[in-house]
Design a protein around this nucleic acid. Structure first.
Lengths: 344, 344
DNA sequence: TTGAAAGCGCTAACAA
DNA sequence: TTGTTAGCGCTTTCAA
């Protein structure tokens, strides 16, 4: 003869509520999930019993029984920077609207870490994944495909998505920015990217190169920032640029954070922006429009990317959308004071 | 006679692995959780079987059986702004180090929403809560206490924490800032807070008032920003201040985001900072030191707050720390160029 | 060191 | 409309 395990987890269970209400556990479950199927009087009794017992529904048990966890996983390069926070907000808002819990993990821009992180999250049996980026290790793709979990990739473009894709062409966007600067009359345009092999960063660099090539312009050295999420490294790059002999007329940065750090560093050293050096960023962040001079950038619908990705994913999970959905979001080059062409 | 439910969730289970390895499921479980208890050869066999079957451990089932979910919940006012992102990073880092999953929800600074959100998260049976703020509805406190889940509150101070507390005195910090400005020679010092009844914001306002009172200075109208997370509303407040007749010598803002927005708006309108108007923020954010002029602020160990809270919580969950742990974090007034006293 | 049995708290499938 | 039964995939407990 065995004794009861530990006397139970703690709080009331559905069974307890059922006893108090004088019904079966199944009826309690129905009251909670499909109240319209339950007789009104019984429903009231059950609801009273729930209050009386202080019952809190157990989603862990529910997940196991129903084989649906009611969670989606969000994989992003970093949680600490402002870069993805609007996209997180987009996903998070949709999740709340649709009563799903978002669980999040960061990869630090390292594919091997992404692999580890996705494997760890798979153990929690999320109903789907939203992933920032389209470049993954072979093992990551295999794992995801084998698991059969719906996936939406975002913030980048690819011809071979794992499943669905909220597509943003970093190449096109940075090419457009470069061409806009060329149209403004700039010729010696430098680019600041990153040394990490982040695919989105690479695509932006390529877009810049394509923009320069299309205009028949030579491409100066491409500089690499260390930490792409800090203004400090933008400032460090600015120092580097100022220390060189041949100062470019304009510098395009991988993102607005780096650009802002550099813009302020240039000014600190007495350079006038844009008269002495023009500065452009990428991302369309709030602070860009407030800076003096206001920062030219490529405006991206960051929150919308998160929203759309979550919507597509949840629709798919609920069977309301097919696999392999594609949705492209646009971008807009916002020319502002930091690149206003002025006579020299 | 019933048929098997749906032919099973999908992937391999522990039982499948056990069959392949020729052992019992219990042995597989041990290999995964306490490998040192299992014979070396058997262990190797089981590990091979895991690889062969592509088995992915199911934490949902594990959580239900063990009555521990391996997750902690993080409740914060907003996820979209930079204000808490370092604290999120702190919690998130500790969680990764200790193999725990963080789940997050936002309250939008509204206590009733906090109540809803906490109840929703309780259904997932987190092993503990980290909560930003110490002001909660009665029902929230009751729920949390009744659930018996360890709680760590943060980012504020209180004499009556629910359980543990990583304490930061917003009152003291803002009082110190105010006194520092007085010491610099400022007299007509205004304060910009918020109309929401956020407790931390309130404490900062009170700290400012105390600082002014201690110096025997009158308190001008306290202005209220709408959205405390956007530079735009800082700029709007700046407009309001400039439109008034009696311009203050210095303005202290609830946080650095508002201060930065205002600082730039002042400059746009031709005011010199700090000569015409001095500006101070709160929070010690990265961008504050880069602005021109660099922004005076109260430096808070934001990431450390997250780390400590998570550590205390996890220690408590593992029985390595007592309930009701108190940990106070400090702050530092960073006087920078935006409040450098200059002769008029 | 290994295994068998009995749940954890819920839901799917079926029956009444 | 309500209830019964049999799991979901794991861990706890006990026995060997």
């Amino acid at each position: 003869m065995r004794q009861r395990r530990t006397g139970r987890g703690g709080g009331a269970t559905m069974e307890d509520v059922a006893q108090v209400a004088g019904v079966s556990a199944m009826t309690v479950s129905r009251v909670l999930r499909q109240p319209e199927l339950v007789n009104k009087d019984l429903r009231a009794k059950v609801e009273a019993a729930i209050r009386e017992t202080g019952y809190i529904y157990n989603l862990v048990a529910s997940s196991l029984a129903s084989q649906r966890s009611g969670t989606i996983a969000l994989i992003l390069p970093t949680v600490a920077s402002s870069i993805f926070s609007d996209s997180v907000k987009g996903v998070s808002d949709v999740c709340r609207e649709r009563s799903v819990q978002m669980i999040m993990a960061e990869t630090n821009y390292v594919p091997a870490e992404e692999e580890r992180v996705i494997e760890a999250l798979l153990r929690r049996r999320p109903d789907g994944f939203v992933i920032v980026g389209v470049s993954h290790t072979r093992a990551t793709r295999d794992m995801l495909e084998k698991s059969g979990v719906p996936v939406v990739e975002t913030w980048d473009a690819t011809a071979t998505p794992i499943d669905s894709l909220v597509s943003l062409s970093n190449f096109d966007a940075m090419q457009a920015m470069t061409q806009a600067l060329v149209a403004e009359g700039y010729r010696r345009i430098a680019f600041v990217g990153t040394a990490t092999r982040d695919h989105r960063a690479l695509m932006r660099a390529r877009g810049y190169e394509a923009g320069m090539a299309a205009a028949g312009l030579p491409i100066p050295d491409i500089l690499a920032a260390g930490d792409v999420t800090s203004m400090g490294s933008g400032a460090a790059i600015a120092e580097e640029i100022m220390a060189r002999g041949d100062r470019p007329e304009a510098v395009v940065f991988l993102n607005d954070v780096l650009a802002a750090g550099a813009l302020l560093a240039f000014q600190r050293k007495g350079l006038r922006v844009p008269e002495d050096i023009a500065v452009a960023g990428f991302g369309g962040f709030d602070f860009a429009r407030h800076l003096i001079p206001s920062l030219t950038t490529v405006d991206i619908p960051r929150q919308e990317i998160g929203r759309r990705a979550a919507q597509i994913l949840l629709d798919r999970i609920e069977g309301k959308a097919p696999a392999g959905t594609l949705h492209a979001v646009g971008f807009e080059v916002a020319l502002r004071e930091s690149t206003r062409r002025v006579p020299r």
